[in-house]
Design a protein around this nucleic acid. Sequence first.
DNA 1: CGCTCGGTTGAGATAATTCAAGTGCAGTGG
DNA 2: CCACTGCACTTGAATTATCTCAACCGAGCG
Lengths: 255, 255
Amino acid sequence: MDMDAFLARLQNYVTLPGPTRAAMSSVRHVLRQMPRGKSIINEGEVLKRVHVIQKGWAIRKRILEDGRRQILNFLMPGDIFDLQAMIDSRSDHAIETITLCEVRSIPTQEFLALVSEHPALASALWWSTVQEEGILREHIVRVGRRNAIERISHLLIELRRRLILSESADADESVSLPLSRQLIADAVGLSPVHVSRTISSMRRMGLVSANGHLRVLDWDSLASIAGYDDQYLHLDARPLDMTGCVNVGDRETTA
Amino acid sequence: MDMDAFLARLQNYVTLPGPTRAAMSSVRHVLRQMPRGKSIINEGEVLKRVHVIQKGWAIRKRILEDGRRQILNFLMPGDIFDLQAMIDSRSDHAIETITLCEVRSIPTQEFLALVSEHPALASALWWSTVQEEGILREHIVRVGRRNAIERISHLLIELRRRLILSESADADESVSLPLSRQLIADAVGLSPVHVSRTISSMRRMGLVSANGHLRVLDWDSLASIAGYDDQYLHLDARPLDMTGCVNVGDRETTA
DNA sequence: CGCTCGGTTGAGATAATTCAAGTGCAGTGG
DNA sequence: CCACTGCACTTGAATTATCTCAACCGAGCG
C-alpha cells in the first residue's frame, strides 16, 4: 500500500496537487510498528515530531493522580497528532495504542518545511484542526448532558463515521469496533460495569451484537436514540480562498 | 482604553512588533455593545467574521433537541472566536453573552490579510488555538471523571487563571465571577440544585462566599480539592522558529 | 405593593457506582 | 487432549451521587 492513510483522509475535502502528494510521500520519517497498549507520547513529554496513525487505533488520555482515567479522543488511520509540537514543547496528555499500530513520525522541522512549500497542505491541516475541535466539543456534550445509552450510542456512531472517512471501512459494511467495556467507560465517563449493563440492554433491543468484538446492527435506531447529528464533523467544509494569507514567517518574540 | 484586550492577551507569550500592533488597531472592524443574554452566533450560522471579546463574558453552548444545554467554554476579554470562519462556513455551536459585552468583529478577508502581513500574529493565533484545545480537553476530564465539588472548584480556578491572563484581574485580588448556578450547572454537567447544594457546602467549608456574586476565599484549598494543574494552559509555551513556514497561499481544491 | 427571578432546602426517586461472585473463552503447559 | 490460569465480560445486591419536584425565601423592580 503506497497510498498513505493520511493522504487518503485529507483528500476528503482538499484535492492535493501531484507535487504535494509526492513531497508528502518522500518526506523524511520513521515508520514504527507498535503492539497494543504501548505509549506513544507521555504526559508532559517534549514534542519533537508530528505523528500520523497509519494503521490501527490509539487513544488520547489523561490520568488523574488517583488513577481515574479519561479518554479524550480516539485516533484512527489518517489521524495526525502533535501538530502543537510546532509551537509548544510539552504534551498535556498521553497517547497510547489500543490495537496493533503503525505510526509514522516526522520531525517537526521537516514537517514545517513541507507545509511551507505546499500551501494546500496548510489549508488541509487547518481544516483538520477545526474538525478535531468539533469532535472535542461534541465529546463534552456527550459526557456532560447525555445518559448512558445515549453516550455510548453517540460514540459508536461517531467512530463509524470517522472510520468511513478514513477509508478504513465501507458505509454499508457492519463495522466491528476494537473497544473493550473499560475503554468505552473511560471515554464516556461511566463505570465499566454500567457500560456492560447498558450494552447488554442494547443487545436485547437488537441494536448491537457483542460476541467478542462489538458490532452495531441498527445504525438508524442508534442514531435516533443518540440524537446524532453530523454537523460537528464539518464534512461540508470547503476551504476559502486563502491566497496570500497566513504566512507564519519570522517571529518577533521575547521571553 | 486604546489598549486592546486581544493585544494584551497575545502579549502574554509573543511580543508583537510595533507595526503589527498598529495594523491591528487600525484594521477595519465593527465594535458592538450587547446586553446580557444576547446571541452573538447561532448554531448553524454562516460565519463571515472573526470576533474578539473586548469586555464582558460570553459562552459557547450547544442545545439538544429536548432543551438540555451544555456550555462548552467561557469566553472572556481578549478571547478570539470563529477563527474557523477562515475555512468553514457554518458554526457547530452558538455563542451568547452572559454579561454586558463589547464585541469587536473583523471581516474574514480583512483578518486574513492582516495575518498574512504580520507573521508574529499568525504564530500567536496558532498558540491560542493550542491553548483552546487544551481547555476543551480539560473540560472533558472535568465533566467525565470528577465529582460535583471537584468539577466546580476546577472550573472556578481555571476561570480565575484565564481572567488573570486576560489582564482583567489581578492575581491577589479576590476575583468575583458573574456566574449563576444555572450557568455553572450547564457547564459542568450537573443540575442547578445540586450545584447550589455543593456551593452551600463549599461556603460552609470557608472556600467561597456567595452573597450575590460568587467570590472565592481560599484558592489554595480549592486547587487541592480540584487536583488543579495549570499545564493544559501551556503558559510556558514559546513559539518555535517557524521562519519561512506555513504559507497558506493559493489552494488547489476541487469541490 | 406585588411580581419575578435566582437561590436555598427538603424529601423521595433514579441513575450510576461499588463490591462481589460467577461465567466463558483463549492461551499455556503438562 | 486436558487441566489451569488469566482476563474480559456479566449479573446481582446494596450503596451513593445526583436529579426531580416542590415549597419557600429574599432582593430588585415596575
